[in-house]
């Protein structure tokens, strides 16, 4: 009997086969790959419109084979709303960093979630402003040193980190809200299944969905990629617990 090669893992079709500009080991790439895999698996490539943020993923649109637009800093949910309103049958997702979503764009994300209209947001929590050189973000942990909290974040001078997933889950609008982590194979598998539910919440017309991804920024954390993954487990997860914070009926 002849031997044949079975594919265990292949590059997704909606992935545009370019080398990304991300730093080595940056989990933006993992989140991107999961999006491409799901777009393929769910047959969404022809219907997808991605909305990209200002942040390290500003060039995200270059890496996929589906239609995309580039939003102003923090405004991706508003832009996605405008697209979804005119094209309700298309699949519209916004991809946002934590400075983008939880600082300058807080109003837009809260109201998109409150409206509850079926758009999907992939939210990258890497604890700092990666693109501008590692400044403090709304998600920076207490004690964490950044270029604008050089002695470590303190509540007195910098206030407290924001738990976006929990906060948005308080609203009646969202259909699905989860926090996942991209630190390990097992958690990346779980991240993908959460993202699948989030995509489904839109495809099935149920409502707004958001997946917060605990991510790394090895460059600005000044850690190796492997150490960065460990830091996510040891320091970030205790403050930002993983889980599903809102799952309305019909989301699967």
């Amino acid at each position: 009997m002849a031997e044949q090669m079975k594919v265990i893992y292949e590059r997704p079709k909606s992935w545009a086969n370019k080398v990304t500009h991300y730093c080595p080991g940056c989990t933006h790439g993992v989140a991107h790959r999961l999006i491409a895999e799901l777009v393929d698996e769910m047959g969404l490539m022809d219907k997808t419109i991605g909305v990209w943020p200002v942040g390290c993923s500003v060039l995200g649109y270059d890496y996929f084979n589906f239609d995309s637009v580039e939003a102003a800093h923090g405004r991706a949910p508003a832009m996605a709303t405008g697209i979804k309103v005119t094209n309700p049958d298309n699949f519209v997702f916004a991809y946002q960093g934590d400075g983008d979503l939880a600082s300058i764009g807080m109003a837009e994300i809260v109201h998109a979630a409150a409206r509850g209209w079926p758009i999907t947001v992939i939210f990258i929590n890497n604890g700092n402003y990666g693109m501008t050189g590692g400044q403090m973000a709304p998600t920076t942990l207490l004690g964490q040193k950044t270029t604008t909290s050089p002695l470590g974040r303190t509540p007195q001078t910098n206030g407290f980190p924001i738990r976006v997933a929990e906060m948005l889950a308080q609203l009646d609008g969202p259909a699905y809200i989860a926090r996942v982590s991209l630190d390990s194979p097992v958690n990346i598998r779980k991240a993908k299944s959460a993202m699948r539910k989030a995509f489904n919440a839109q495809v099935r017309g149920i409502g707004f969905s958001l997946v917060e991804c605990l991510s790394t920024c090895p460059t600005n954390w000044r850690l190796t990629p492997v150490e960065s993954m460990e830091r996510v487990r040891k320091e970030v997860m205790p403050y930002f617990p993983l889980g599903e914070f809102k799952v309305v009926e019909g989301v699967l």
């Binding site: 909305v51 309103v85 837009e108």
Partner: peptide, 12 residues
């Protein structure tokens, strides 16, 4: 801010 960015999305 949101209005004009919704317009932006729709215009696209």
């Amino acid at each position: 801010v949101a209005s004009i960015n919704m317009v932006y999305g729709a215009a696209c």
